[in-house]
Design a protein around this nucleic acid. Structure first.
Lengths: 326, 326
DNA sequence: GTAACGAATGTAACCGGTTACACACTTGGA
DNA sequence: TCCAAGTGTGTAACCGGTTACATTCGTTAC
């Protein structure tokens, strides 16, 4: 490996001068600069970030913690984060937490051990000691915590919209899928939907679910139509679950949206590809990722940061699993 | 930040002794060890990986380069990689290359700058200088390069299976979607399918595509049914494209699989959730990721590694977009 | 003529670990 | 009794950068 010493020797200068050239700091004579730059080019040298990081006590690394990249909502988020960071010269250490606090703690620890300069986390435990004790900037993504910097979409409003739209389009016996209890945004959207239904004095049923996994979604779909045969509107906990409902409805010979309307949540790419395509509440996942990265960069590079809590709008995406308003 | 010096001071020993305790190397008296361990616990100390990495010239970091995490095939791969690495104490620096050689080069460079100890890459340029010059172990994932360690599924055989199955199930006028020219596995599966069609002397049509993006897939679906109205069997370049075809067939009032059979590729999670669910060629993405990680770990930790080229089997997953064999 | 300052460069300490080496003490066998 | 080997611990060099500080030289101002 080529080191700064090698470059110094080739260029006939000291390491300090090479460092000055690399970092464009201090005084360097133009001719000296040329010699050094030439040596750098010849040797195709790039400085060791580890050595830098050790001295400066900070790196260009940022930790990203997501529950499960396999859930189609998260690749969008991750991509948004990665794109903006990459454009700004930062790199990502990435981990899946599986919503598991121990795994999360373990990752945060190794992030710190690697001198990461900031963390973006989709955690269910934003108020845990782990995060409070962190001395580096942290942005909660798709999750919130009182005063801490965070980027999220308005889940409660999303739930409200879903309920309003499905009612507006004529469903009378609505069933709501309640997402996993420990996932805050899932509960927010659930609460939002409930609120509207209560306000309008509608009767409704609830099916509990405990994950967003592909594998189990089918089970809840079966349970739903089993228990609530006459349901004519389903507000799903996310697009995966909505897809399973759609499939099950199909299997049972129920016409969608004529017999049952279905509204998903997230607007993952798959939802537009289904037949019929899925009406859903859109969260701007990619933008959320970008915003989170942008906010983190600001927190890292600036003294004062305003608007460190960013809420992005959700919207109803009308497709084919809901009826048109008459 | 707590350093090894702090611990040494608290425990009343030298840093060398603390280091010996941490790394379980050399001689340490039991009582001394206890004192040190106590100090470590009290201070909740964990050693700085950056300092370690600098001295040892290697870290616990591994670079992972994927084309686009947003393509639903890759999260599975990534998850497989991450799971096995995490279990073995390694961490991941992650980047999206967009199949772009410059971006790839840039990532590889920063991987090296950060003393990564190995790289897993899904690249279209495995034989480029960038990789040849790398002095650390590298595993090509979902891609191959002559003698270099790689993990992939048999694309040609996948293509052959797809063609055989669709013919076996009665399609006479088959259209093949040819994936992006620069993506090797896409061409492999295309070639495999062509081979079988030629061997059996069947006529067929080809539609060129230039990406796997959701956005453009619809366009090719339209083009397909526009140009080849009478096609009764479509071999898609992957599941995303297959989904778009399915949707378009639906829109045109063609019955699937009665009028047109469709076979996808990858068996991404979405394919089982469609209605009708998608028959496809399964690549064991998660396992591919795990295998790649396992192979890389072996390359890192062992002197000699046998079987450094791992080919995983593909299989036909029969669902509802193909007819049953009579 | 010289004090003051800017430009250019080098020396060496430092970041937080690991480890080669030196040294002291114990133990056991010849 | 003496030496070799084993045990236990500390000192300091080292990894590859950055930077505080010292030094030298040339120019300008008084």
């Amino acid at each position: 490996m080529t080191t700064i010493k090698d470059i110094a020797k080739i260029a006939g200068v000291s390491v300090a001068t090479v460092s000055r050239v690399i970092n464009e700091s201090g005084y360097v004579n133009v001719d000296t600069r040329k010699k050094v730059e030439e040596a750098i080019n010849v040797m195709n040298y790039s400085p060791n970030e580890v050595a830098r990081s050790l001295y400066k006590r900070k790196s260009k690394l940022i930790g990203l913690l997501l529950p499960d990249i396999t859930n189609p909502f998260f690749p969008q988020l991750a991509r948004g984060v990665e794109d903006l960071l990459q454009e700004n010269g930062y790199r990502l250490i990435f981990g899946n937490s599986d919503e598991n606090e121990d795994k999360e703690l373990d990752y945060i620890r190794t992030f710190v051990q690697n001198n990461v300069i900031g963390v973006i986390s989709s955690t269910n435990f934003p108020d845990s000691d782990t995060y409070h004790k962190l001395k580096i900037p942290i942005v909660f993504l798709d999750r919130t915590s009182n005063e801490s910097p965070s980027v999220y979409a308005d889940g409660r409003e999303g739930g409200r919209i879903a309920a309003r739209e499905i009612i507006l389009r004529g469903s009378k016996r609505i069933t709501i899928l309640q997402g996993p209890a420990h996932i805050k945004p899932a509960q927010d959207r659930f609460q939002g939907a409930i609120e509207v239904l209560e306000e309008l004095g509608m009767t409704y049923d609830v099916i509990q679910t405990s994950s967003f996994s592909y594998g189990e979604a089918g089970k809840w779909a079966k349970e739903l139509f089993d228990k609530h045969t006459d349901t004519d509107g389903v507000i799903a906990s996310n697009d995966i679950v909505a897809t399973a409902i759609l499939q099950e409805a199909h299997r049972l010979g129920k016409a969608v949206p004529q017999d049952v309307q279905i509204i998903g949540y997230d607007d993952t790419p798959l939802s537009s590809l289904l037949s019929p395509s899925l009406s859903t509440i859109r969260q701007p996942a990619y933008d959320m990722g970008r915003e989170a990265a942008g906010l983190l960069i600001r927190l890292i590079e600036q003294d004062k940061v305003e608007d460190s809590i960013i809420q992005l709008p959700v919207s109803f995406v009308e497709r084919e699993t809901t009826r048109t308003i008459i």
